[in-house]
Amino acid sequence: MRRFLEGPYAGVLALAILVAVLPLALPSLFYLRIAALIGIFALVVVGLNLLIGYAGQVSLGHAGFFGVGAYAVAIGPTYLGLPAWLALIAGAAIAGLIAFLVGRPILRLRGHYLAVATLGMGLLFAMVFANESAWTGGPDGMPVPHLDLFGFRMSGARTWYWISGVSLVIGAWVAANVIASPTGRALRAIHDSETAAQVLGIDVARYKLIAFVLSAVYAAVAGAYLAMFDGLVTPETAGFLRSIEFVTMAVLGGLGSTFGGIVGAALLVLLPQVLTVFQDYEHIALGLIMIVVMIFLPAGIVPSLAGLLRWRRS
């Protein structure tokens, strides 16, 4: 029992329970929409955490993959006659493939160079979405058809809460599996020291690429969800600010902690809603909260608080 509690799967179980119970505490569709959005963004961050938190490789371009997923479910059904679910899978596969092809050369870079390269990649995606207006509708975006599964129409906040919630649990479970596997150990070794990892016989390039591709697929699936949930996709979906938002979520919640990513996503989705009471000072308040968190909880919310609790107990 104790071993289970300390293992990676206890967190996933707790998350599953939370997802199952949460709707009972949410009074209206508005809260369900917020919860669904948290689930969607958390899914990206859980994937991104594998790359940033475990493999230690930063990416400022993940909104690009997010956009690939989003535009896949828009373009697939509209122009190619694909059913939405197939377009979603195709989008995730394309994002994974792009990540594989781009990742090989890009992941040779380190630190700032890698950050700049991924940034450029993300900007390229956004430019393509904004300029190929024959396919993407240009800067005003294009509508996204509904997802029909087993004869049911997937629309509305309640349905999407369950879709995003269940996906998040599955996503967290896959991430927990990866982390607990030899791949996870290799990733952490690369995070600590690439040279040391190499000396130990770890194929550094290969493991970095695995994390990159995995995180791209997570982002693409989440992007497809968001597009279908909103019923519209615009180039902002894949914009530079989105990429920054993802990294902020991961860092704020706590790198190297799947739960941290979820808390970070929840915080950045919730705060703008809560802070509307400050009216014109909304953005100042948001910035202030982030600064305070990073000063007092430098490792991110979840790891810092967990460390604090452990320290108190002992």
Partner: peptide
Amino acid sequence: MKRHLRMTLPSMLAAAAFLTAAS
């Protein structure tokens, strides 16, 4: 991991309560 849950749930509920009060 149990502590994670203990922290997330109340913070989410608190946020939800705040949202209701604000509107």
